[in-house]
Computed example of a mutant assay.
Amino acid sequence: MPSPAAVTTTLPHSGIREIVDLALSLDTPLVRLEIGEPDFPTPANIVEAAAAAGRRGASYVQASGIPPLRGALAEALGRRYDLDVPSSRVLVSHGAVHALDSVLRAVVAPGDAVMIPDPAWPNYEMQARLLGAEVVHYPMPAERGYLPDADEIRALVTPRTRAIVLNSPSNPTGALLPRHLVEEILRIAVEHDILVVSDEVYDEIVFDGAPVCAASIAPDHAVSVFSFSKTYAMTGWRVGYALVPEWLADPLTRVLESSISCLSSVNQAAALEAITGDQSAVARMREAYRARRDLAVGMLTEAGFDLVTPRGAFYLMVPLADGADSRAAALDLVTRGLSTAPGSAFGQGAPHALRLSLAASEESIRTGVGTLIAWHRETAGGLALEAETVRR
């Protein structure tokens, strides 16, 4: 019989999805803080715009996105980051994950090197490895506030380095890269003619400081990727977009054509209403996430945890005891009625930590954090777990 490509048999499953699948398989009540799924409904005006588009009739449209949406996105980016952006540099994708994957496909060949942060959302590494690229991790340790060091990144660059992935605000840490640091990394990219692929999907969920659009600083050497999923509670609608260099627009369009033909015209109508309509829901959700962050950080700090307070996104990294196995901890917590994401799912940089998603209700966060605090005390921060938990 035919056999799968070798890379697909060695590609690890997502450590986040392991917990998600386990949570979905249980019939018992569970406080779910393992996945970044906003608990808010998609605003009604967006849903109605989609319904109206559906009644008019869905059809094939341009692979790079319908012109009204691309124009509206260019205008919105211009207002947000004080830019003069032509719509030709804005391409629409099937969610941000599709934009990230398509950009890498457009510039990375087998044997090239792709630099990604550690800890980081695991899909970056999965996408690079599927392309036959070498993955090079640059560290973002907790003791540095989960921020990278530009000199460390520079030292890791080789003639084979084709792309550097940034993510700010960060999943899983909530860290927000300051402008001067983004500028330093972009200088490295320009010097070595490398493309920076900047995942900025949480750019409108920032609590302290301001987001930085990498593509606005080095327009020929950076791609900024955005999404409607988190900003507008539209995860299931699967609409993302990217601000790309002019030289990349046509190659990237070819990749989009080959992978999805085009994004649903109904979903693009919803996105058009989201970006041009009433924005008050965005501010309300952002303030709710801020309150949830403050609640979780306050409870854990009072209980004696040493935390790095996230400045954006809706995630919080909670340290376990040194030497504790985060996967074992996450599996054990599910039996206690709480699902979290193990730090090991995000690389080697946070093996003794758990990621909490603060996209759940305040009641769920209060209950879940209380469970975590009690569990932490009972298990000595996870060190007292039995070996059987690890083997599951």
Rank of each mutant, 00 (worst) to 15 (best):
V136Q: 03
G368I: 04
G304V: 09
R154Q: 07
V136L: 08
D208W: 08
W121H: 11
P4T: 10
S339Q: 02
M126N: 13
P67D: 10
V282Q: 04
L243T: 00
G240Q: 07
V297Q: 02
Q348G: 14
A214Q: 03
D208Y: 14
A150V: 05
G111Q: 07
P351C: 03
V297F: 11
L372N: 09
R284I: 03
T9E: 15
K230A: 12
T173D: 07
D199C: 08
A72I: 01
L181F: 02
L181P: 00
T10Y: 07
V318D: 01
P122I: 15
P29F: 09
R286F: 03
V182D: 03
G349E: 09
G349Q: 04
A99Q: 09
I46N: 10
V223W: 00
L195D: 06
L166E: 01
Q348F: 12
S357A: 05
P245C: 04
S344H: 06
A303E: 02
A218E: 00
A74S: 10
R129M: 12
S326E: 05
A210I: 01
A350S: 15
A215K: 00
G57Y: 09
T8G: 04
P86K: 15
E18D: 13
R187V: 13
V7K: 10
T10C: 12
R162T: 11
A76T: 12
M299V: 03
H180E: 15
A350Y: 02
R377I: 00
P211M: 02
P141H: 08
A222H: 00
P67K: 01
Q348P: 01
Y124R: 01
D84P: 03
T161M: 04
L30F: 03
W375M: 06
E388L: 13
P159E: 15
D21A: 14
